[in-house]
Write a protein that binds this DNA or RNA. Sequence first.
DNA 1: CGCGAGACCTGATAGC
DNA 2: TGCTATCAGGTCTCGC
Length: 280
Amino acid sequence: MAELPEVETMRGDLEREIVGCRVERALVAQTRMLGTQDPDKLRHRVEGHMVTEVGRRGKFLLLGLTGGDTLLLHRGMTGNIFLRTPSDPPDIHLHLALTLADGRELRLCDHRGFGEIRVLDPAGVAALDARLGPEPLGPAFTADYLVGQLARRTALVKALLLNQAVVAGLGNIYADEALWAARLHPARRAHTVNQCEATALHAAVVRVVGESIPRRGTTFSDYKDLYGRPGGNAAFLQVFHRVGQPCPRCGQPIRLIRAAGRGSSICPSCQPDPALPVEA
DNA sequence: CGCGAGACCTGATAGC
DNA sequence: TGCTATCAGGTCTCGC
């Protein structure tokens, strides 16, 4: 749910809505997502500060605050962030609520609690930036870069796409969509992908992610935007969550396999299994 | 050091 | 109907 296009949609909406707003109160409703951070310290570093900017790095949302700290929010698998008014009913599975000076409330909700809430100083932001790979739509994510990464790794190509240190922001949905577009089986070993295939994969990643942002991301069940509305990209998915339906390219039924420990939707005809002998 | 399995949680759903 | 097993869009940690 919280892959790059969904987080970027959230970033843009938040930027329009809350930049320039002061946080009156920060309510930590559950501490699970704080890790080792002290909830009172977090509260004090947020309360009274104004949101100066809303950034994103990979799947992390970064709210810049006056005073130099940054509130980091990660939505894990099922986390949602809603902008509410005081008259709205309470949200279940609330973890953090920020009350803004104008009365609106930013609420982070997550029943599963796989997300993350942290306050970072500038060094913390730099450390986060350093451990993540390039943004798929940024200048550093070139075809040559991906060719190089694939060439010196033995992991499955699917695992490589999901590795945030290789490229930041891809998750299961867009990884599967990109692999299908590039006609690559997810269980191919990275170093067996040739330069031509890697170039196609690079183009597919850029296109799949880029096209999904203006559609405001992909919703199946959990993911909602800041206003509680679903994203519009699900109708454009070619393989993900389409098991049994015909491949849009060749008509063969889409299959669900397991690769790199994750469910992976593939077309068995367009994305031949590297473990099987090639048909004569 | 790179890789893959398992762990972390709760809820929805499929199957019996 | 109701129980159980399985699976879920992410990431970290731990062995090998």
